[in-house]
């Protein structure tokens, strides 16, 4: 009998304990990206671009070259990096406020240009780092510190379906939404993240992957309750699936 390790920390991850709150599924996403970097063997060939928000310290956990961006501007910074290093893998990570509110311009035009970068978008329907304010993806009726009575669509409009929006642009090669709320979806999410990197490596164009995630702290729920709340409230509004795949881009 011999024991084989079937699950270990990916090599592209540092040993640092992540700063995310207990039960925040952002840590899963952080790990999936590292697993993909390992599987594609691109650790020494990758430059990551980070956000402002809960994932602002993401560089502490990936053992790759890293470039900071200001709030919302990661796709523009990644554009600058990719234009200088067209042979490198350049990816960005942003939260919902970063990518779908203050940085809407940058992500839309990076997609429209068909910028050969992979953009990861963590949607937890709230501003986490600043303490639970309404996000562009806050669900109608969802309580936040700036929508204390629940998001009122008359006053504050509707959540932004950014990933569907980007799918209609000719420059977008790949657009998909995944979730990490249970093991089956975690496995699926990793495949999709990997595909987004492969689309870039093959030079097929711009890739966006939205990843639904929880925020137990600011939702005011336990980690396990948060998973349930995501299933019941976020999934119906933000359906998972691929909205555009590279085969469709040339049509």
């Amino acid at each position: 009998m011999s024991a084989a390790k079937v699950f270990t920390k990916p090599a592209s991850m540092t040993d640092k304990i992540m700063h995310f709150c207990p039960g925040c599924t952002h840590g899963i996403i952080q790990r999936l990206v590292a697993e993909v970097i390992d599987e594609l063997d691109i650790r020494e060939n990758t430059i990551a671009v980070g956000p402002v928000g809960c994932a602002v310290f993401c560089y502490d956990y990936w053992d790759v070259d890293f470039h900071q961006a200001s709030h919302g501007r990661a796709p523009a910074v990644a554009t600058g990096v990719k234009r200088v290093h067209p042979d490198k893998v350049v990816f960005s990570l942003q939260g919902d406020g970063d990518i779908a509110a203050i940085g809407t311009t940058e992500i839309v035009h990076a997609a429209a240009r068909g910028e050969k970068i992979s953009c990861l978008f963590v949607n937890n329907s709230i501003y986490g780092m600043t303490g639970g304010q309404m996000a562009p993806t806050t669900i109608v009726g969802q309580k936040t510190t700036t929508t204390p009575g629940g998001r009122d669509s008359n006053m504050a409009g509707y959540p932004v379906k950014l990933t569907e929006m980007l799918a209609v642009l000719d420059g977008t090669a790949y657009s998909a939404r995944v979730s990490v709320h249970n093991p089956a979806n975690v496995i699926k999410a990793k495949k999709v993240i990997k595909k987004a990197f492969e689309v870039q490596i093959k030079g097929e164009g711009f890739a966006i992957v939205e990843i639904l995630s929880t925020c137990p702290t600011n939702w005011g729920l336990s980690p396990v309750e948060s998973i349930k709340w995501l299933e019941e409230n976020i999934l119906p509004y933000f359906p998972i699936g691929e909205f555009k795949t590279p085969g469709e881009v040339s049509r």
Binding site: V49, S70, A76, T105
Partner: peptide, 23 residues
């Protein structure tokens, strides 16, 4: 490479990325 950006803000952030990349 010449790139017309979508905004002044994007342009300076592309400069940020290119400068950080050693160009």
């Amino acid at each position: 490479t010449f790139l017309q950006a979508e905004s002044e803000i994007s342009a300076i952030n592309m400069v940020f990325g290119a400068a950080g990349s050693g160009a």
